[in-house]
Computed example of a mutant assay.
Amino acid sequence: MDIAGRLRAKMADANLNETQLGKKSGVPQPTINRILSGESASPRMPTIAKLAKALRVSPEWLMYGNGDDAFDSNVEATIGPTRYYEYPEISWVQAGVACEAMDLFNVGDFEDVHPSDAWAGPNGFWLKVRGPSMTSSNGMSFSEGMIILVAPGSDVESGQYVVAKLIDTNEATFKQFIWDSGRAYLKPLNYSFPTVEMDDTWSIVGRVVDAKWPRSVL
């Protein structure tokens, strides 16, 4: 059994779905989904430690299958030092002009400040997910109220998640970027919403490099 199988089995034992485990552990639901799907076969040890604690299993067993799955509350996993970065949470209106006006922001402009171990560049920022367009009933999902970390100016590949904006109005949106047959599209994860073809009226603000529930709802 691989890490995905061990994680899935313990989630079933605890009667937890991805979203519930994310809230209980503090690990973003998209990260849990990547582990379960096999996309992330070697997650970071801090992530494993959080999941193991939430599921009351040994981190070593969950990660490697070593020993038994017994949980020892008197033993803390040695996960090594982790470097964290802090980025401001800004509004969607600010996101639309982020590339041009980021140097004008001051502390009073921020909604909040959140940490991440993902590097989003010197001008990275968080946004709170609005609406259900990126909520899926299966697989990857970003529920309303989650926060996403945007790395402005990052290179984007097909299948990655981005914040894009309409150039004329600076109205920003969060979607999956798809490149197909020489054309670019902004695809929602909720099939009730339409996929939009990107033309010269759109531009990419940045790539999403992290997602999680804010501390207030964990």
Rank of each mutant, 00 (worst) to 15 (best):
S136G: 07
S181M: 06
T78W: 14
N106W: 10
M146W: 00
Y64C: 15
G206H: 02
P43E: 03
I35L: 04
I204R: 02
F125N: 07
K24Y: 12
W213K: 01
Q176P: 07
A41I: 06
Y161D: 04
K165V: 00
A9I: 11
T135C: 11
S154W: 09
Y64G: 12
K187P: 03
L149K: 03
F193S: 01
P214R: 08
A101P: 03
F174A: 05
E111C: 07
A70Y: 06
L7M: 06
G80K: 10
A4E: 15
E39M: 02
D200H: 13
D210A: 11
D68P: 05
L218T: 11
V75Q: 10
R8I: 02
I90W: 02
A151H: 10
F71G: 04
V107E: 14
S192C: 06
D68N: 13
V57L: 11
L62F: 02
W213F: 15
D109H: 10
N66P: 03
R6I: 07
D112I: 05
V209I: 05
S192G: 13
Y185L: 03
A172F: 05
T82F: 07
A41T: 14
W61L: 08
G139H: 00
D155P: 08
M140T: 11
N15Y: 02
D199I: 04
P115W: 11
S37F: 09
P152I: 05
A52P: 14
